[in-house]
Design a protein around this nucleic acid. Structure first.
Length: 274
DNA sequence: CACGAGACCTGTTCGC
DNA sequence: TGCGAACAGGTCTCGT
């Protein structure tokens, strides 16, 4: 569910409460939620550590502790909540941390994840988790020139390449469809065929779409989400059969790389490679 | 290297 | 109303 803007929103929401808190205990309710280490080691190792900072890297929530890094990836259905100290675990709560803060009651950080795809890592080596990721699309490292050169360096279709976190880190299904539409590029376009001008358009579109997503506190579909409202501004995502906001043509749904994909067939044309 | 299929999971929505 | 199929914001692994 959550892509870069949604994760960013969660991080901004949690940061004030979590920063400075001490972890008193961990309750692991679904063992496979832990990517590493084992539940036993996790509980021993995390107890007593303080939360120094809460950050985001791509779609990972990065909680910097006194001695380790705690990473959370929400995958499709994960979410993180703050609950009061007396909170009792609900059906889909997979991991709970008991916390104490200097000038407030004890509270809990709850990882809730209906589909159990989400994962948590506790490690002293961040590269073990995020070392293989591509650049952050909102960082200075990501430039039109970088995008042009690296699109040309692969021979892949645009959409699966943009979804590849080792290529560029943070886009998911929604923001990829939105970016491609804004850039007027078809998701099946061969990356190596993209011109400088098209790459520049795609660069601007990715930055614009992610920035707007963050400004609107992400998109809220199915789950109530920090008041996010980007879902009200989708151009094509989940809008099959409705008019393209640019030209009015009916938006089509197709499948690319096994992902539902939404395009305007008039704005986003595609010349099959000879 | 690129790609499709299947796996991992549960819940909701859609069509009959 | 019931019931199975299709689908869902993500990523990994395997075979071609």
């Amino acid at each position: 569910m959550p892509e870069l803007p949604e994760v960013d929103t969660i991080v901004r929401t949690l940061r004030p409460d979590l920063t400075g808190a001490e972890i008193l205990a961990a309750d692991v309710r679904w063992t496979r939620t832990l990517a590493t280490p084992s539940a036993k080691k996790f509980k021993e190792q995390i107890r007593g550590q303080k939360i120094l900072h809460v950050a985001r890297r791509a779609k990972f929530i990065h909680i910097i502790l006194s001695a380790d890094s705690l990473f959370v990836h929400l995958r499709m259905s994960g979410d993180l909540f703050i609950k009061e100290g007396g909170y009792k675990p609900g059906k889909h709560d997979r991991l709970l941390l008991d916390l104490s803060a200097p000038r407030s009651e004890n509270f809990k950080l709850v990882f809730n994840d209906a589909r159990k795809f989400g994962r948590v890592w506790l490690t002293d080596d961040p590269d073990l988790v995020v070392g293989g990721l591509g650049p952050e699309p909102l960082s200075d490292e990501f430039t039109p020139q970088w995008l042009y050169e690296n699109l040309r360096a692969h021979n892949r279709r645009l959409k699966p390449l943009l979804l590849d976190q080792a290529f560029l880190a943070g886009l998911g299904n929604i923001y990829t469809d939105e970016s491609l539409h804004m850039a007027r590029l078809h998701p099946l376009t061969a990356s190596a065929s993209v011109s400088r001008a098209q790459a520049a358009r795609l660069y601007e579109a990715i930055r614009a779409v992610l920035t707007e997503g963050i400004r609107r506190n992400g998109a809220s579909i199915d789950w109530a989400y920090r008041g996010g409202e980007f879902q009200n501004y989708f151009r094509v995502y989940d809008r099959a059969g409705r008019p393209c906001p640019v030209c009015g043509t009916q938006i089509q749904r197709l499948v690319v790389g096994q992902r539902g994909t939404h395009i305007c067939p008039k704005c986003q044309t595609w010349k099959r490679q000879p």
